[in-house]
């Protein structure tokens, strides 16, 4: 039944947006992290979404869900700062900051939370209509 499929579609989308919110939280938490080498320095992480056919066997695939395909790391340069008093500074006195851009993360977070809300509303409308359909002619 179509209405029941909406619940699983929206559920999958909520899952994907939760992963996205999780990576954003982790990025923001690691904004101020410094490391002693470029390789160890924290890089901003971002999930990539892909469409998944819920019911590929059917003549017309009934729904197009979403899943997290992979999590990519930002390729932006990690800022190199001269800070010889820092305990993790390398032999030349440099530390490597994380390449997280907090402004970008905040904007991304707003988008993720809006998407989460809209999928939640979708599911709740579908659920109300299901109840209404089951209650047909009982009044």
């Amino acid at each position: 039944m179509s209405l029941a499929n909406i619940l699983s579609l929206a559920g999958g989308a909520l899952n994907a947006q939760t992963v996205r919110l999780n990576t954003i939280a982790s990025n923001i938490a690691n904004t101020e992290v410094v490391s002693s080498s470029k390789e160890q320095a924290f890089r901003s992480k971002k999930p990539v979404f892909a469409t998944v056919m819920e019911d590929a066997q059917a003549a017309m695939p009934s729904g197009y869900g979403v899943k997290v395909q992979k999590i990519t790391e930002s390729t932006a340069e990690n800022p190199k700062v001269y800070d010889p008093t820092n305990p993790v500074a390398d032999s030349d006195g440099y530390v490597y900051h994380s390449n997280v851009n907090p402004l970008e993360e905040m904007a991304d977070m707003l988008d993720a939370s809006r998407a989460f809300e809209s999928n939640l509303t979708t599911a709740s409308t579908a659920q109300q209509l299901m109840i209404r359909t089951i209650d047909m002619n009982t009044k």
Binding site: L3, A13, T51, Y64, G65, V66, A112, T122
Partner: peptide, 26 residues
């Protein structure tokens, strides 16, 4: 009712894919 329910499902799929690269709304 069946067609509108199907339509709701297609649109729910669009909303689920609002952040998917190269997805085309149907």
């Amino acid at each position: 009712a069946i067609v509108q329910a199907k339509r709701m499902e297609v649109i729910a799929g669009n909303l689920a894919n609002s952040s998917t690269p190269n997805y085309r709304a149907k």
